[in-house]
């Protein structure tokens, strides 16, 4: 077993995660924290929060199915143990984002129909591309799809959501900060494990690159749908952040990637997010010896 895999121990995960940054949290945030009143009091912002949280639940359910499915396909004990910890991380993400839907006022009996109704079809297709590889027991393609493409996307999306919510909705920002910390380990495993495995399986490169191109297309289409549908709510939230409607005057500026999220138009935010994720894909794939494939524009 390569010696770096010894770091992927349950003990290390326990000390870093449940006994570290998740200590004394409830559903990922501090006890007693609640959703910001500006979200709960505005039908437009509440609906947008529900819509976007449904996509997070769908994405995390895919990650849960993928990471648990990869355990039996893993070629070594260190990877199996790491993927066991990742499986619990992903199950926790499903739980905390599902709890957020309840906190936003969704009834338990409405949860599954709501998720089914609002799940973006392109996000579902994105998950299907990945889970097909995992069903075939293809560990190398599965880890690239899960820990580099899916987790790379989640890492960047969570960072942008964190920047958007850190002033406006601290409870959700705190939930996101724990998931971002988890994603660091997941992308690290993806790069480090595949960086060595891809050299042993150069014949798999073309197939994996096709998978990345297809997943990237569905990701971009999901972003396009989400920002188009959320545009009115985004503009209302920006108005609040800028203090122009008097609800939260003086709120400080939310910045991400050097840009002010309080002033960007929804289509500019979509473009910034898409560019950031694709740039990250390209850098990460190049580092592990794969050629990034530009997706077809949706």
């Amino acid at each position: 077993m390569p010696d770096f895999l010894t770091a992927y121990s349950i003990q290390n995960w326990l000390e870093s995660c449940p006994q570290g940054y998740l200590e004394q949290t409830q559903y990922g945030h501090a006890a007693g924290e609640s959703e910001a009143s500006i979200v709960l009091d505005s039908p437009k912002l509440r609906d947008q929060a529900i819509q976007s949280t449904v996509q997070l639940v769908v994405g995390e359910r895919c990650a849960l199915a993928a990471s648990s499915g990869l355990i039996n396909a893993a070629p070594d004990e260190g990877s199996k143990r790491f993927l066991a910890t990742q499986t619990l991380d992903e199950a926790r993400h499903v739980e905390v984002f599902t709890q957020r839907l309840l906190d936003l006022g969704v009834r338990k009996t409405e949860l599954e129909p709501l998720i089914k109704e609002h799940a973006n079809p392109h996000l579902v297709a994105f998950a299907e591309v990945l889970l097909e590889k995992i069903d075939k027991g293809d560990f190398v393609a599965g880890v690239v799809g899960q820990n580099i493409v899916l987790e790379g996307m989640a890492f960047t999306v969570f960072e942008m959501l964190y920047a958007t919510n850190v002033e406006m909705n601290p409870k959700f920002a705190h939930t996101l900060s724990g998931t971002i910390a988890d994603e660091r380990r997941h992308v690290g495993f993806g790069e480090n494990r595949i960086g060595s495995l891809i050299k042993e399986h150069p014949e798999k490169k073309a197939e994996i690159e096709r998978m990345q191109k297809e997943m990237s297309f569905h990701m971009l289409a999901t972003f396009a749908d989400s920002f188009r549908e959320s545009a009115p709510a985004i503009m209302e939230a920006q108005g609040i952040l800028r203090g122009t409607n008097g609800t939260q005057a003086g709120a400080s500026e939310s910045r991400w990637q050097g840009r002010s999220l309080s002033t960007l138009a929804p289509e500019e935010m979509e473009s910034l997010l898409a560019d950031s994720v694709l740039k990250e894909f390209k850098i990460r794939l190049t580092r592990i010896g794969l050629d990034y494939q530009t997706p077809v524009a949706p």
Binding site: S16, A181, R185, N192, G195, I288
Partner: peptide, 24 residues
């Protein structure tokens, strides 16, 4: 890097800044 468990080697980039490269 303990948070992501990556082993890195420090290099000086073309711009003169220090950068870390992943050692797989």
């Amino acid at each position: 890097c303990m948070p992501c468990m990556s082993r890195l080697v420090v290099i000086r980039s073309a711009t003169g800044h220090l950068e870390a490269r992943v050692a797989y």
